[in-house]
């Protein structure tokens, strides 16, 4: 790129000229690198603040899927708060006889209607805090399964 531009002459005065073409070269390389890195990543999935995902080796997330987040204080579907939890515990009135959460079930049904592939979509991206007890997770799983989301993708912090 440097050869494309006319080289600036050294000024006769005592002022120092900034070699802007070299800077442009460096910036181009950094920009290409960053754009490539961003494109390869999964920028669409980002856990909310305060959540610690478990660490494991996992596959790369390839497509946009409905996300369900479980943290200490709340359950979110598509980044929207569905219900509040008290230290990972569902409110007692929330759990139905078949083990599902009524609010979560209703929200997932609504979300299913809005998905482009409403009839076939069975995938759900689950982001849960690593301290979530299985009792809470079970309620979430039961609610998801009852709305047809049976293929779960558990999001983890990837290791080598």
């Amino acid at each position: 790129m440097q050869k494309m531009f006319k080289k600036s002459k050294k000024p006769a005065t005592g002022e120092m000229a900034l070699q802007i073409t070299s800077m442009a070269d460096i910036f181009t390389i950094i920009l290409v690198f960053l754009l490539k890195t961003t494109a390869a990543g999964i920028s669409s999935v980002s856990p909310n603040g305060g959540m610690t995902l478990p660490v494991a080796t996992g596959k790369i997330i390839e497509k946009d899927t409905l996300t369900l987040e479980v943290n200490k204080d709340s359950v979110l579907v598509d980044s929207k708060n569905v219900l509040s939890l008290s230290n990972f515990e569902f409110p007692l009135t929330e759990i139905q006889a078949n083990g599902i959460s009524q609010s979560l079930y209703t929200r997932l049904i609504e979300q299913r209607k809005h998905r482009p592939d409403a009839d076939r979509s069975s995938e759900l991206l689950v982001l849960a805090d690593e301290s979530t007890p299985y009792s809470t997770l079970k309620t979430v799983l039961a609610s998801a399964a009852n709305t047809g989301f049976v293929d779960l993708q558990l999001v983890v912090v990837q290791t080598d």
């Binding site: 961003t38 990543g41 999964i42 494991a56 049976v150 993708q153 558990l154 983890v156 912090v157 990837q158």
Partner: peptide
């Protein structure tokens, strides 16, 4: 805007209930 942690995923099914 870029995320410095790399996220991955596991595919699991939900075992039949009921």
């Amino acid at each position: 805007s870029m995320s410095f942690i790399s996220l991955g995923m596991f595919e699991v099914g939900v075992a039949a209930s009921g």
